[in-house]
Nucleic acid binder design. Structure first.
Lengths: 124, 124
DNA sequence: GCTATATTTCTATAGTTGTTGAAATACGGA
DNA sequence: TCCGTATTTCAACAACTATAGAAATATAGC
């Protein structure tokens, strides 16, 4: 990840509504949520939510897809992982980053078993 | 980590000078660097650097200590790790975060061997 | 105590960001 | 085609953030 994209991502997350929004989507996996549901959950006005959604999309942290009349937003895990790697770059020596990839695939393809899943692989 | 502290940390990092500054300190480990050296490396004016250093200190991402006439700044790895955990919370299911702790201790106590060190332990 | 160095604090200014409400656009169904 | 729902875009304003330069503070050595 280059500096500019990292700053965009950090700036996008450094705001109450957007941080809550992103964390909400992170827990939802690839399915995501429609804008209206997000607005209800977070208690923000539609125009304000739209503004924040656009910022997160522009930063590459979430993606948008249309499903009939609704716009569905979901977390972009790759960007988040790249950001974590960028922040921790060289923290443990010689070009290595400490942060591994967050990989929600297991959880959302296996029907959420009751026990905690195995750790995501590093750079998986 | 609570929301307010996470936002403060993200906001502190979402700026060109501060992000470069934090990443510089991350590579230096507990030894850190004096303000003057940082100003030279980043090419910013002392008053501007001081402003940015204060923001990072306030966000808990770096700490300050005095060494004679110099003020030495170093990265606060604990805060960074807490932030990574906060961002990835529940991304892999059931309250678990994917991001492990970045633990520079090995590197800085073993004299930086030529090969890459073992991965930092999770929540170590 | 005086001087030099290292760094911070203060003040002013320019630029960026978030909120609101009203109007516009996109889609689906009668 | 007309209507209702879902969502975005626009414009105006208040609040916050970054920068520069000048003045102030802290420390060390003579």
């Amino acid at each position: 990840m280059e500096e500019k994209r990292a700053i965009a991502a950090l700036g996008a997350l450094a705001q109450e509504t957007r941080l809550a929004l992103f964390r909400l989507l992170v827990t939802r996996g690839p399915d995501g949520l429609p804008a209206g549901v997000i607005a209800d959950r977070l208690g923000v006005q539609p125009s304000s939510l739209s503004f924040h959604l656009a910022q997160l999309v522009h930063a590459g942290l979430i993606t948008q897809r249309r499903l009939s009349r609704q716009l569905i937003y979901s977390a972009e895990y790759g960007t988040m992982n790249a950001l974590l790697a960028y922040l921790t770059e060289n923290c443990c020596g010689h070009g290595a980053a400490c942060a591994p990839a967050c990989n929600p695939a297991d959880r959302f393809t296996k029907g959420e078993p009751d026990e905690a899943p195995a750790r995501a692989r590093v750079r998986g």
